[in-house]
C-alpha cells in the first residue's frame, strides 16, 4: 500500500502545513516530521509528511549505483 507523492512545504502552522506540487495545494499534517521547514521537499502519504527529501545525498548515492550497474555491464 502506500501511495505517497513528493510536495513542497509552502506554509506551516503548528502541526498543520500547506504543501504544493504541480500547482496542487493540500493541507497536510507534519506531526511525523517535527523538524520540517518552509520550502522543504517532503513525501506525503495519507495527508501526512512521512519523510523530508534529501536530493543532494540522493544524487551522490544514485551515481554510485549507476557506476555499479555500468561496471557489471562491462563485465557481462
Amino acid at each position: 500500500m502506500c501511495l505517497a507523492i513528493p510536495m513542497t512545504i509552502t506554509k506551516i502552522e503548528g502541526n498543520k502545513a500547506v504543501a504544493e506540487s504541480m500547482g496542487v495545494e493540500k493541507t497536510i499534517d507534519v506531526s511525523l516530521t517535527p523538524e520540517v521547514k518552509l520550502d522543504d521537499k517532503v513525501i506525503i502519504h495519507a495527508g501526512f509528511v512521512i519523510e523530508i527529501l534529501d536530493p543532494e545525498t540522493a544524487k551522490e548515492i544514485e551515481q554510485t549505483w549507476d557506476e555499479y550497474i555500468k561496471t557489471m555491464e562491462n563485465e557481462q
Binding site: L3, I5, S21, M22, G23, V24, K26, I44
Partner: peptide
C-alpha cells in the same frame, strides 16, 4: 495533461 491534473491524479491514485 496539465500539471495540476497529474498532481491530483498522483495524490488520489
Amino acid at each position: 495533461v496539465h500539471d495540476e491534473v497529474r498532481g491530483v491524479s498522483e495524490l488520489l491514485g
